[in-house]
Write a protein that binds this DNA or RNA. Structure first.
Length: 110
DNA sequence: TGCGTGACCACGG
DNA sequence: CCCGTGGCCACGC
């Protein structure tokens, strides 16, 4: 595996997130075999905001909090995108996060 | 080249 | 749940 393709891997997994579902940075990191490097996933998402191919709004932190909303074009864009997909947001947090949670390890297998 | 910072997470108290 | 600590890795200065 090329180490340089880490960002690409992150983007690829993010692309696989179904509409109306969300996942966490840690879940993606763990799926890629770098569970301790969840922060880098966030950094990768930072560059994904400008990438229409990658739904960065479907990636939240481990408790379903929209920690990255501040990095979008507008602080409300992330929530609006999720709500448009049927994901209910309450106080910058995904309601029934466990129900909307999409774990690549479970869904894609490891 | 080295240090601080960050869209995080796990662990212990 | 909150708080402090350590670790991870990429990036900017």
């Amino acid at each position: 595996m090329d180490k340089d393709s880490f960002f690409q891997d992150v983007y690829e997994v993010a692309r696989l997130i179904p509409r109306g579902r969300v996942t966490s940075y840690g879940a993606i990191a763990k799926y890629l075999g770098v569970a301790r490097s969840a922060r880098v996933v966030g950094w990768a998402m930072n560059g994904a905001v400008t990438n229409q191919e990658v739904p960065a709004h479907r990636v939240v932190n481990r408790v379903g909090l929209l920690t990255g909303k501040n990095h979008f074009a507008t602080p409300t864009l992330m929530q609006e995108l999720l709500e448009a997909e049927g994901v209910e947001i309450r106080a910058d947090q995904v309601v029934n996060f466990d129900k909307h949670f999409w774990d690549p390890i479970v869904e894609l297998g490891l």
